[in-house]
Amino acid sequence: MVNQTTEHTLKANTVVQVAHSVKEALELKAQRPLSSRLISGGTLIQLEREQGKVLPEQLISLEQIPSLRGIEETEDFMIIGAMTTLSECANVECLKTVIPTVASPAVRNRATLGGNLMYTCGDTIPALIALDAKVTVVDGAEERTVSVIDFLPLRADEPIVTHIHIPKESVESFFYQKVGFRKSFSKSQLTVSSMLCLDNQRVQNNVRFAFSDGERAAMRLTSTEQALVGQQLTKSIIQEASETLRKELALIDTATTYQRTVAKNVFISELINRMEGSFE
């Protein structure tokens, strides 16, 4: 016999607190660490609410913190405020192929780059890994700037992301592809991204390959990177890289055969595309 009895009180009235500075947001968070949550664009929290997840008692909105908004260009970096919407980010050269694959136009008008980084499997994460972006986070009194890979585990403590720094490397060498369930406004089945700079067909040191299975955080494919670095991009090197990649993807036991095969195919096709004279 089973009882369909659930203990519930009337829905908690969630209070939205609007912070006007990072400091204020941190203070508010510290006051109720367990019953509050930071909210930026709110598109994920909205989805979770639809899925039946109970909202916390307090939401701390970061929307009214001016220092977290906007895009600044320096000689070496594009510095993007975490509260900058994805729609605004679409104008950043290196994100032009990335942003349109995330959710829908209406969601991108609300959702922020910082929010996407805080989302377990945000579509921009593999791209930012491949772009070697750095993330500035404030946690307690401490501010630090770390790589995306190093940032990912910090998310558990719900820090405030303040800025994302994207090095101005060669945009032509950047590659990104999301495989969804339909052409737009879809969850990712898998997302791959790479940075592959060539000098006279030789793979430069800054090679980066990133993969996400659409459920868990993205990861770097370091063995494949090692197999390529310093090599002349030839057919035999691509064949070797393909084998290394196959083995490396096989180690990801949460990934399905389909995800592994597609990831390999897409990366290798990109290498073939980049190899001089291929398919010409």
Partner: peptide
């Protein structure tokens, strides 16, 4: 709507699966 939602949660049904 909120009260109605809460109310149906408070209906206790026992089943033999």
């Amino acid at each position: 709507i909120e009260v109605a939602e809460e109310a149906i949660k408070r209906i206790d049904v026992t089943y033999d699966v």
